[in-house]
Amino acid sequence: MTTQHPVVAITGSSGAGTTSVMRTFEQIFRREKVNAAFVEGDSFHRYDRMGMKEQMEKALACGDHTFSHFGPEANLFEELESLFREYGETGGGRVRRYLHDEGEAAPYRQEPGTFTPWEDLATGTDLLFYEGLHGAVVTDGVDVARHADLLIGVVPVINLEWTQKLHRDKAKRGYSTEAVTETILRRMHDYVTYMCPQFSRTHVNFQRVPVVDTSNPFIARTIPAPDESMLVIRFKDPQGIDFPYLLSMLHDSFMSRPNTIVCPGGKMDLAMQLIFTPMLWRLLERRPRTP
């Protein structure tokens, strides 16, 4: 962790909704005139789309049914930790971009599912903002979490997470329900081993809990709307959190534990704005002033 060059990381599983959270932070950065360096977690996958397909086929041929994007074998954890550490120390680092679709790939004249070349981060940014799967990951040889100044977990209850993933992958990526289900099953070992422990290290967790039936996410026709859910916000360290202010600003909210506030799901964007704007101020104000 550093006072000179803060690192903020949003971490969550596939289908958790981290991209929506990133858009909220984009609004905060624009309003508060914060120049953030954005890093997507997908850019630290080890293999491009075709390479990952080949590695999965090799794993299956060897009887390994757990190889997935969630585990260390498919990711560059060391490089991610180096980026967080280097940015904290110098404000720099090496990054690349994963091109998900034709729209992202066209400006680079590359195929979708490939990586751009590694390049240096732009100089003079105020903070590093990471959004992806592994912002708080820790293994025997890597500790990404210790280099982040603010860690935020986005963790819908698992049936809701699966419902969101099923609908996203079917609508945007053309996958069948069977293909998405197979992916969920294959990732389960790495989900338990590498994903879940991260949310014990995050400083703030946002967990959306539906108040409609999601008991079988594999046949759900729609994703529960924000107003059909409650939002559980857990603070690792409640010291300094102005709970009376948050309760007054978030209508129909209440505290379920000394470090936990619950509010209607439709107020997630407002809750994040209220909570993280002052946190970002404090991170940026801690930086030594240049003479």
Rank of each mutant, 00 (worst) to 15 (best):
T290L: 14
R31D: 12
R234N: 09
M1H: 14
I158H: 03
V211L: 13
T90V: 06
H203R: 07
T177G: 06
T139I: 06
R109W: 05
G17C: 05
G88D: 02
T123N: 02
D169Y: 10
V211P: 00
N205Y: 10
A225D: 01
G93M: 05
N259I: 04
G41F: 10
T18C: 10
E54R: 14
S82K: 15
E228C: 14
H69F: 15
K58G: 05
P210E: 03
D227V: 01
T163A: 08
P112V: 09
M188C: 12
T90I: 05
G71Q: 02
H134G: 00
H167S: 10
D120I: 03
V142W: 04
L274G: 09
M52K: 13
R201Y: 11
G113W: 03
Y175T: 07
G265T: 02
F84I: 09
V8A: 04
V155Q: 10
V95L: 03
G41Q: 09
L270M: 13
G63D: 12
F44M: 09
L247K: 13
G135K: 11
F84L: 13
L151C: 04
T90E: 04
V144H: 00
V204G: 01
H167I: 04
P226H: 01
V142K: 00
T181I: 04
A36I: 06
F199C: 07
R23F: 12
G12M: 07
L99Y: 07
R30Y: 12
Y194K: 09
A59E: 04
R289M: 13
L80W: 02
I152W: 09
Y130M: 10
M279W: 11
Q55I: 00
T24R: 11
L270C: 02
M230T: 10
E131Q: 09
Y245L: 14
T125E: 11
R30S: 15
